[in-house]
Design a protein around this nucleic acid. Sequence first.
DNA 1: GCTGCCGATATCGACATCCGATACTATCCG
DNA 2: CGGATAGTATCGGATGTCGATATCGGCAGC
Lengths: 102, 102
Amino acid sequence: MREFQRGAVRVHILHHAAEHEIHGAWMAKELESHGYKISPGTLYPTLHRLEADGLLISEPRVVYGRVRRVYRATDAGRAALAEDRKALLELAQEVLGHGDDR
Amino acid sequence: MREFQRGAVRVHILHHAAEHEIHGAWMAKELESHGYKISPGTLYPTLHRLEADGLLISEPRVVYGRVRRVYRATDAGRAALAEDRKALLELAQEVLGHGDDR
DNA sequence: GCTGCCGATATCGACATCCGATACTATCCG
DNA sequence: CGGATAGTATCGGATGTCGATATCGGCAGC
């Protein structure tokens, strides 16, 4: 149900990472507040993959003594985000545009 | 890349199945025309799953001598579609709302 | 300092899903 | 009758997802 979520998570991550630094736990909270349940076993590998794909870069940062791995979108990440946005817009127009839902 | 697609395919299927009968090959063409590449190995199991989940019903139909399995959305399917639309709208507002797309 | 705890990140095994290729079925056409 | 065609189903490998659990580094209390 709502496998929708998978793509949405990716877009959300890129979206936020393009605006400011993010870290895993914060992202999990953010996603949850939007109704997306994502387990750590999915979130972290996803971040790693995005980084491996060159869409994010990470660096350990110490915040109040805690070490966090903070992520930021790369140029490629922003490009991918733009593409995803385009696809999302298209999908929205196609599916929502009709206004006929029955 | 663009795993976005998985959810989109589901929504597309429900969307069309809610309006008229569809069958696998037609759906494949329709999706392709929107830029989604989906292989039969994904499409047919997906249709089967949607049916198993009670969102679609199918029945074999003979068209010009060819047997097709035609699908139609059930009530639950329409409900699921409505939910997916809501999620899609939310996602679109969240991600597209900023107006910054580089 | 050592120990136990805490936020945060990483990893593990099991399971589901995706995919391309291929097989299968029934009909049409020459 | 035999090959071509449309459409659907299935197979095996690869990848992704999940929840649970392990790890890590610093801090507080002792």
